[in-house]
Write a protein that binds this DNA or RNA. Structure first.
Lengths: 193, 193
DNA sequence: CGTGCAGTTGAGCAAATTCAACGCTTGTGG
DNA sequence: CCACAAGCGTTGAATTTGCTCAACTGCACG
């Protein structure tokens, strides 16, 4: 169900103002959703990897914009069609509710994250990324420092300094700015509220 | 559907660890949900007034605890029964999805709130409370300064100072600590992301 | 009339932001 | 092939913001 569409890196999948006629699933690549506040600051709603669903909303307009972070293929699903299907098919309805629940819990986690200190936020972020690539002791970030900062509600300088501090305390090792080895997960976990 | 149960102020409706066997609707009174972090800090999940639904979760255990802020009557609904009903009754399913969406958008709003300054957070909070009691130019807070602080992710001192500052800038007028007259909504709105 | 609790105010401090400079990598034009 | 501009990330210094600790006020309740 749904058509596959390709988006080049730097394009736009949908904007904040657009109608919520479609929802999306990442097939390959990666996507970020974000919102620009009236003072120019940007808040990232989430990062989405293959398999993840985004743009699942319940108002008339999208609350966030969505952009591919790399060249990306997404499956596009008509919202009306899905909801109609859900009314006749309980297992689809269950899926729909399940995914909403996933999103909701993620938001709750983010909410808790945002009241914590810079160290705690960055540590949580690293663990969150690591969870999605569980095999490795190291992680590769798909996003820039600016993306991380806007995700965690802080500045790029603070992100950078915090990573340096975590390296100094032997919790992680920076091998190039986007490749990070997690040396001591206990230290990171201890920071994770 | 569902039984009505009374809880005295200061009691507990459910705890973080409890199974999500039930969900709840406020009949009279008011409820707060909260979570205590491992460092002792408390984060308020939300405040709920008559008509509001809370405890609607999708994991096995509640992510938050729930307490009445005043003597409160709630309607208790068995989650299993509701979900079973939703599978056979599309309008119930729609309701369920709708309420999840309300919760989700509220969380998104909170997320944006938490990255803003103290002034912006308090201003947003006042407007949020005012929206729920639209008739008056003034609002009566059901909750303490500590509750507000834990809702907005700041300390009681900062809440207090911020309210004083807003009064100094003629945006509000404090008539007793829980009764606040909104003198200039434009000023407040301008602060609201 | 005290005692206790909620809220306010003040002073000093810690954390994160801002502003600025610098290093490294990458891509472009001479 | 080299020079140099542009972008990203890091680091440093000064500043701002909110927190901590502490004292104080006002109010409710015995």
């Amino acid at each position: 169900m749904g058509a596959i569409i390709s988006y080049p890196r730097g394009g736009e999948i949908f904007g904040e103002e657009e109608a919520t006629d479609y929802l999306y699933q990442v097939v390959t690549g990666s996507v970020r959703t974000y919102k620009v506040l009236n003072d120019g600051r940007r808040q990232i709603g989430g990062f989405y990897l293959p398999g993840d669903i985004f743009g699942l909303e319940f108002g008339d307009e999208h609350a966030f914009s969505a952009e591919p972070m790399t060249d990306t293929k997404v499956r596009v699903i008509k919202r009306r069609a899905l909801h109609d299907l859900a009314e006749r098919n309980p297992s689809i309805a269950r899926e729909l509710i399940f995914h909403t629940g996933v999103e909701l819990r993620q938001m709750q986690k983010r909410m808790l994250l945002l009241i914590m200190s810079a160290q705690e936020r960055v540590a949580s972020f690293l663990l969150e990324v690591a969870e999605r690539a569980p095999a490795q002791p190291a992680i590769d970030l798909a996003m820039s420092r600016q993306d991380i900062a806007d995700y965690l509600g802080m500045t790029i300088e603070t992100v950078s300094r915090t990573l340096t501090a975590l390296e100094a305390s032997a919790a992680i090792e920076l091998q190039g700015s986007r490749h990070i080895v997690l040396r001591n997960r206990n230290t990171l976990n201890r920071l994770n509220g």
